[in-house]
Amino acid sequence: MTIEDGDLGGLLGRLPVCAPDTRRAARLREQCRERLVKRAGGRRADSTSSPRKWKTVESMSLALATAYLAAVVLVALRLVGF
């Protein structure tokens, strides 16, 4: 049977679909679903809590305040003779 150019499109369109591994496909689908939900959950949690930038500022402020307080205490101790 000779195949002409005009037949080619139809013949290619009718080629059978190669079957994927169904067990691997099921595992993959589950893995993707979990990741999708996890990522969306992570985004929601981020949006309801303080942004990371402010968390950094908060922890830096706390460290500075602690250092300042320690310095004040040390100066006060020196003043009273320790």
Binding site: P20, A25, R29, C32, R33, L36, G41
Partner: peptide, 15 residues
């Protein structure tokens, strides 16, 4: 992040 939407897309395109 709707997993049901992922199922639809997966069904349509995986094979």
């Amino acid at each position: 992040g709707d997993p049901a939407a992922f199922d639809v897309v997966f069904e349509a395109y995986h094979r």
